[in-house]
């Protein structure tokens, strides 16, 4: 087990690597964590995710904007790719599999990719259908993979209206499946009206929501460790 000073130094390197969108620092930090025998889950949550939380704060404070967040996400993935194979299966009570994609008629996937990052971090099995996905494909993939969660994204009002059809079809075949909708034009009212189980709050930005979800997982983990 790494000594505390070394551990702190590595976690700090991972955290700052994400904040300063420094992919090399995250890669180095992740390798050092592996070499020092640091718990990979700890490196992910107390290093990378902790950095992403600060990025979320900087975004709220309008110091960071979307380009910075995308670079921070690249840095997070650079570290995550190295740490992932060393992860013991986490038990956060939320693990599972998810089908995610942007609905047909929409070719925007930045918000979807940031939400996906959250699932990757949490150790979910992610079935990413990509963008401009025909509605039936969400239904088929959910049935094929028996996923607990389906996430539908749309950035344009002009493509969002395909969502209720998917929700209806999935619920008809599999009433227990949770469905989340997200993207700029969605709202709580629409989620309720269409029968979705959740939506990206503050619909103006799916990014903040993804970061909030990551932070929530970290909190779950912290509570578990402190028990």
């Amino acid at each position: 087990m790494a000594d505390e000073t070394k551990k702190k130094e590595i976690l700090e390197k991972l955290r700052n690597g994400v904040i300063q969108y420094d992919e090399d620092a995250c890669r180095e930090g992740a390798q050092e964590a592996v070499d020092a025998g640091l718990d990979a889950n700890e490196a992910i949550f107390d290093g990378l995710v902790s950095g992403m939380e600060e990025v979320g704060r900087l975004f709220e404070a309008q110091e960071y904007f979307v380009p910075e967040i995308l670079m921070c996400a690249d840095a997070l993935y650079a570290g995550l790719d190295i740490l992932k194979p060393h992860c013991k299966q986490m038990d956060l009570g939320v693990r599972g599999s998810v089908v995610i994609g942007t609905v047909e008629g929409d070719v925007h996937d930045i918000g979807k990719n940031l939400v996906r990052m959250m699932f990757d971090v949490a150790g979910f099995t992610v079935y990413d259908l990509g963008r401009d996905v025909p509605l039936d494909q969400f239904v088929e993939e959910q049935i094929k993979t028996d996923s607990e969660l389906v996430c539908l994204s749309a950035m344009m009002t002009t493509s969002m209206v395909g969502m209720p059809k998917v929700i209806e079809k999935i619920k008809e075949k599999n009433p227990d499946c949770m469905i989340m909708i997200g993207g700029a034009p969605t709202s709580k009212e629409l989620a309720d009206k269409w029968g979705a189980d959740g939506y990206a709050e503050d619909a103006g930005n799916a990014l903040k929501e993804a970061i909030k979800m990551v932070a929530f997982l970290k909190k779950l983990r912290d509570e578990k460790l402190n028990k």
Binding site: E104, G105, V107, G162
Partner: peptide
């Protein structure tokens, strides 16, 4: 571009 020629409902063209 894709104009979704066979779509029943309303899908705007995309790249």
């Amino acid at each position: 571009i894709n104009v979704y020629p066979h779509a029943e409902g309303i899908l705007y063209p995309t790249i």
